[in-house]
């Protein structure tokens, strides 16, 4: 099959990858900043979401929409359960960040092999769900791809409105900024953290379904997305919602454009996953706080530091 090198298709594919990373990265970055550790079990929330949609549509014959809703609910509850049963008690027992990271690996291994036990290790496909494909001029699109992009865009708009316009959003921002001050101001931070874990895991599950529908369902589905997801949240700046969105689409573009380079050099396109690794290294060297930590206005107007102010 000749590889499509038209620019429009690459831009469109970048949009798809970026949208997937938005769904997957959101929970990762939010729980990271609220609970102060990178949750490696996030990969398994992604996988679980895909398998539950499969169970709902292919085995229980539910419709796709209800399948996705059930899957998001279950994945969300699994996320909250992990937090309540493992991460919160461990943090209360003065577990360090490394202890929390290792425990999340333990949770991840448990979930992955539980999934493998229930559905088997072989790859599965959604047989009852089909997505129509169209050719718009030089552009090849399917309803799935449009669904992925629309879902991410709508989600970003809704979350933006929640974060800026509602009391819940204000509480979420306050909790992520300074938990003890938020608590002192009367915010129930436990409730906020649980909402974030639920939302993060549910969206990871949704992202997992999209990824699986586009490729196949395997137990290592989530593990394969975890590396780019970490690249996205580190590039965006941990805990930064808007930085994460920008980083997701930047990585999407970088990965898809790298395919042209890899093909013209005659190297395997598998290496596009290495782009995430390169992004992590570059970010850590030059801007460890990510996009959200860069003061862009500094580049446009030169200003002299005020009296007593320390210039970064």
């Amino acid at each position: 099959m000749p590889f499509e090198t038209n620019l429009l298709q690459i831009l469109f594919n970048s949009l798809i990858s970026g949208s997937l990373y938005v769904l997957v990265g959101l929970g990762l970055t939010m729980t990271y900043s609220l609970t102060k550790f990178p949750n490696f079990a996030h990969a398994e929330f992604i996988t679980l979401g895909a398998y539950i949609v499969y169970a709902m549509t292919d085995i229980l014959n539910l419709g796709l929409i209800s399948g996705i809703i059930v899957s998001m609910l279950i994945t969300g509850f699994v996320g909250v359960a992990c937090f309540l049963m493992v991460f919160r008690p461990l943090a209360n027992r003065k577990g360090t960040m490394v202890h929390l990271m290792i425990s999340s690996i333990g949770v991840g291994i448990f979930l992955r092999y539980a999934i493998q036990q229930i559905w088997g290790g072989q790859e599965l496909h959604f047989s009852k769900v089909h997505f129509a494909g169209y050719n718009l001029g030089p552009l090849r699109v399917t309803s799935l791809w449009i669904g992925i992009i629309l879902t991410a865009v709508i989600l970003v708009i809704i979350l933006h409105l929640i974060l800026t316009q509602t009391k819940l959003g204000k509480a979420m921002r306050a909790t992520s900024n300074n938990p003890s001050l938020a608590q002192a101001s009367g915010i129930d931070i436990d409730k906020i953290i649980m909402i974030v874990w639920f939302l993060g895991a549910a969206l990871a599950g949704l992202g997992g379904f999209f990824k699986a529908a586009d490729t196949r369902i395997v137990p290592v589905l989530g593990w394969g997305i975890l590396l780019p997801a970490f690249a996205v949240i580190i590039l965006g700046g941990i805990g930064s919602f808007y930085g994460m969105i920008a980083a997701a689409y930047i990585l999407g573009l970088a990965e898809n454009f790298s395919i042209i380079g890899l093909i013209s050099l005659g190297i395997s396109t598998d290496y596009r996953t290495a782009i995430g690794f390169v992004v992590i290294i570059i970010t850590l060297i030059f801007a460890p706080t990510g996009l959200s930590g860069i003061n862009f206005s500094k580049w446009f107007k030169r200003r002299r530091p005020h009296e007593g102010e320390v210039m970064e």
Partner: peptide, 19 residues
């Protein structure tokens, strides 16, 4: 499946020891 079970116990063991 014994392989799956071993890894599930392994994951749990890691959490329990840390806890």
């Amino acid at each position: 499946d014994p392989n799956n079970m071993m890894f599930m116990i392994f994951g749990l063991l890691l959490i329990i020891v840390l806890m």
